[in-house]
Amino acid sequence: MYTQLVDAPEGASEASSPEQATFDDKIDRSITIEANDWMPEAYRKTLLRQISQHAHSEIVGMLPEGNWISRAPSLERKLILMAKVQDEAGHGLYLYSAAETLGTSRDEMTEALLSGRAKYSSIFNYPTLTWADVGTIGWLVDGAAIINQIPLTRCSYGPYARALVRVCKEESFHQRQGFEIVSTLANGSPEQRAMAQDALDRWWWPSVMMFGPPDSESQHNETSMRWKIKLFSNDELRQKFVDQTVPQADTLGLRIPDPELRFNAETGHYDFGTPDWQEFYDVVRGNGPCNRDRLRSRREAHDDGAWVRDAATAHAEKRAARDSISSAA
């Protein structure tokens, strides 16, 4: 049944087979596509790339924050940060499970990440230099992630949409705890205030770039939008992020590092400057400040955990063998 495949990006519109017609009809009527349903190979591949990258980002995203667990300024902050990092592991797991329904294995995805073949969000290749960075990540990075993910809870692929419902529920705790950390610093001593401003200065542009290249340069936008696995364009989401975040920065009394930023009364939106896209492409290609460090940490963690996985497998095999002997007796 997979023989009548069509190449992306033309795939979604060519009703060249009954299966394709059924698929197109479901997409048009917003009926979710489920794991066992027929789908064009290009749809499967695009989704697999999107969901696995999303999962990898959750997993690698634990590293910048994990860096501060042992140095959180109070026991309460430490408990909260551990809970947040644990959530990210959970999000990675929900998403890997969704990706597996498309016919790839967890081991294949893990291997793709560890070998450096798979991509993950560029934002996690920046270092967390101070405690203020932890708060700023929650506020900006998780804030950006929410804007990106909430529409995806209505995407056409059922397992992905359902995973994101869980992710979004948990993500708003992340954003609020981040904002609270930044707010505490912004209302603290002059040094703390300077720390909050410094973190915003460093994280602002990378956060703005999280939504991906401008629509004029994005290769995947159009097809993905037709397939309803992307519901708003990169630039639309980016605008939403800026519009939502600027008033929050105003409340904190912090300055967004963009001289071109101003409210446009005609459009009702903020106009803002152009990010350094060369930096974005450099980071995506592996030359960000922490790319090598992140992959090394993941590989070490994976290798260090090998004996635990082996022990669990051996234990399960021993128990299974024992059970079969006793049931035979």
């Binding site: 893990t110 291997e111 590989r299 090998a306 082996d310 497998t313």
Partner: peptide, 9 residues
């Protein structure tokens, strides 16, 4: 990653 290939999923 050494173990992922020889260990059954």
């Amino acid at each position: 990653m050494s173990d992922s290939s020889d260990r059954a999923a």
